[in-house]
């Protein structure tokens, strides 16, 4: 299957994109080296040698642009790919990748699907799997029209670079001078850490809707510090502005991979659980023994989270041996 990976080289997430898409190809396609290539959009802020070194394929095409705006990138991509036969365009699972995959399919007459976690190629179709019903179920879909345009599910792999590739074959295009769009009058960009403290944390204390107030959420933030953990929260907590958005765990927030996650007053909605399911160990603290997270945890305490956590702080800080 002929495939192309489309990456955003203007973003500080480039290595994550390259790692995730490369892992997806390795896990899903028995491809030959000549089957695939990567298209990388980049601007002056990116070091070309780094883009080339992290590319998931031997062949890559570098496209110089002014800035990575989806409307402009779609126009450039269609121009680049005009008349070229390609079975599969693969985009990262980030915001830009999800947008481009759908819109590029619409412009090329292909078929698209977002947040795919697995594919099975057929002769003229592609079977894709992705989460449905707010992450409670998984659907199997058939895409029937080429080119197949997919974005992959977020957090599918750790985004580690794949096998080292000795020699790259690099070609280049320059769209630097082309007009970008006609609808944006001005744009201020504020950079943020794309991985975030939650994304790197080995130990997370997660707070759910059951904490019931901003004050209690702030108290949990202090307890997290005392335990040496980072505070994460579920969507209801973040949407109530009891904690900043960068503390949000789940499919619409950080997909974390800690060694240990203590989940306090979290019911365990599937969309939240997706953000902690890669944890090595999960401990649920909940007053409700029927909460879904209790079954999805390694260990659970059915009791008041505040009392349990305060007791736990004493134990962790004392480090006393058991009597």
């Amino acid at each position: 299957m002929k495939y192309k990976i489309v990456l955003n080289g203007c973003s500080s997430t480039y290595r994550i994109q390259a790692g995730e898409t490369g892992a997806f190809i390795r896990n899903n396609l028995e491809s030959q080296p000549g089957d695939g290539s990567t298209i990388v959009f980049y601007n002056d802020g990116a070091a070309k040698e780094n883009l080339i070194a992290a590319s998931p394929t031997t062949r890559l095409h570098l496209v110089k642009i002014n800035s990575y705006r989806p409307e402009a990138v779609l126009t450039y991509l269609k121009e680049l790919e005009y008349g070229i036969e390609c079975d599969l365009y693969l985009f990262p699972g980030d915001y830009a990748g999800s947008e481009l995959s759908t819109r590029f399919a619409a412009r090329t007459g292909g078929s698209s699907i977002a947040a795919v976690d697995k594919i099975e190629p057929g002769s003229e179709s592609l079977t894709c799997y992705r989460a449905i019903y707010s992450n409670y179920l998984r659907g199997r879909f058939r895409l029937g029209k080429k080119p197949f345009c997919l974005s992959i599910a977020r957090g599918l792999s750790a985004g580690a670079p794949g096998n080292q590739i000795e020699k790259r074959q690099v070609t280049e295009s320059d769209f630097w001078d082309l007009p970008e769009n006609r609808f944006t009058r001005d744009c201020e960009f504020t950079a943020a850490d794309p991985v975030g403290e939650l994304g790197r944390a080995p130990f997370i204390l997660a707070a759910g809707r059951g904490v019931k107030s901003r004050e209690k959420t702030e108290m949990l933030g202090k307890i997290a510090k005392e335990l040496g953990a980072e505070l994460g929260v579920s969507r209801p907590v973040a949407m109530s502005a009891w904690a900043p958005l960068d503390r949000l765990l789940g499919i619409s927030g950080t997909m974390a991979r800690p060694k240990l996650c203590l989940a306090a007053a979290v019911s365990g909605a599937a969309a939240f659980y997706a953000g902690i399911e890669k944890s090595k160990k999960i401990v649920a603290i909940n007053i409700d023994a029927q909460a879904p997270l209790v079954r999805a945890a390694d260990v659970a305490i059915i009791d008041d989270y505040e009392t349990v956590l305060k007791e736990l702080v004493k134990l962790v800080q004392s480090g006393e041996p058991r009597e």
Binding site: T127, R138, G139, G144
Partner: peptide, 25 residues
Amino acid sequence: GCELLGIEAIDRRRSGIIIEGETAA
């Protein structure tokens, strides 16, 4: 061009061991 072929449940169960005791402490 996207057709649903099947639906499956996602099994997220872990061991779910519930710690027993008289008090929270």
